[in-house]
Design a protein around this nucleic acid. Structure first.
Length: 297
DNA sequence: GAAAACACCTGAGGGC
DNA sequence: TGCCCTCAGGTGTTTT
């Protein structure tokens, strides 16, 4: 499942393989893949055909590729992409057989490798959107918080915002308006590193605990990025179809009943927001009922 | 306004 | 072999 490190790996691949190339043709194979492009498939195709991708940017788990006119003038628009749970942006030879879940294809005027959007579960999608003032972040992505690997990330503001919340700490980590790019896998890993249970109430976290948590987030994201991201199956790959290696280093996620790398206690799995949370019962004790957040009936 | 719940979606895997 | 159910989970919308 693509989270920040995986999306950043894809962004780097796009920057290497796609930036500077001019689109010759666009094919949309599944309408749901461009459901966020409200003007429809014809508009999507027209907005990109003959235009040149000039960069590859990322905020949180979103990617966007600004496009320019043939004479180099900015169109003020960008191809915005989100990989969802199973999306892949692949750079492949035209002779490569189509993937089963191929949703869109871009060919280029240089006749080189084409760009394909493949998505099994169709949670991801593509759209052409206006850029913000000064060709900055597309307005639809403006609510996504800067991620903790960004130099502009404001530690004090994050700490204050986290402690202002009235929710559980894991819910807060998954809130992309608070901190960008963290998903279920890295939230569990960061909480384990900070020795915090995900149900701990945010407003009762000590300043030092927030600092430990942020350090855990930064460390785990940075290490995952260095390993090329996490891969549990074939659903996450870079633009060349290669899987990451970070899954070999996961301490708790998907490790139910295996020993905690720190203390040896079997890792537990708990249901959380219709998905799974993994933690160490010894290193990350559940908060006492008196200090846990009261949940609505 | 904030927080929580829910819908969306497909394929793998397990049980029968 | 085939059917049914559960599970995976990020995001936008709806509900509380």
């Amino acid at each position: 499942m693509p989270e920040l490190p995986e999306v950043e790996v894809v962004r780097r691949g796009l920057d290497q393989w796609v930036t500077g190339r001019t689109v010759a043709s666009v094919e949309v194979h599944h309408p749901r893949a461009i459901r966020r492009h409200l003007e429809g498939a014809d508009s999507f195709v027209q907005a990109l055909t003959g235009r040149t991708f000039v960069a590859a940017h990322r905020r949180g788990k979103y990617l966007w590729l600004p496009v320019a006119e043939p004479d180099g003038r900015s169109t003020g628009r960008a191809l915005v992409a989100h990989l969802g749970m199973s999306g892949q942006l692949l750079v492949e030879k035209a002779s490569s057989p189509d993937e089963t879940h191929l949703r869109a294809r871009f060919t280029f005027t240089d006749g080189g490798r084409e760009l394909r959007f493949v998505d099994q579960r169709t949670f991801g999608g593509l759209a052409v959107e206006d850029l913000g003032d000064g060709d900055s972040v597309p307005p639809r992505l403006a609510h996504i918080a800067i991620d903790p690997l960004d130099e502009a990330f404001d530690v004090d503001a994050f700490s204050a915002a986290l402690r202002r919340r009235r929710t559980e700490v894991k819910r807060a980590l998954l809130d992309q308006t608070l901190i960008g790019g963290v998903g279920n896998i890295y939230a569990d890993e960061a909480l384990w590193r900070a020795r915090l249970h995900g149900a701990r109430p945010t407003e009762k976290l000590a300043r030092a605990q927030v600092a430990d948590l942020l350090e855990g987030i930064r460390d785990v994201l940075g290490e995952a990025l260095a390993q090329g991201g996490t891969s549990f199956d074939s659903l996450y790959v870079d633009v060349n179809g290669q899987s990451g290696y970070f899954s070999r280093f996961l301490a708790v996620y998907g490790q139910q009943d295996r020993p905690c790398p720190r203390c040896g206690t079997p890792i537990r799995r708990e249901s959380f927001m219709n998905r799974s949370s993994y933690s160490c019962p010894a290193c990350q004790p559940r908060p006492r009922a008196s200090s846990a957040r009261k949940r609505p009936a």
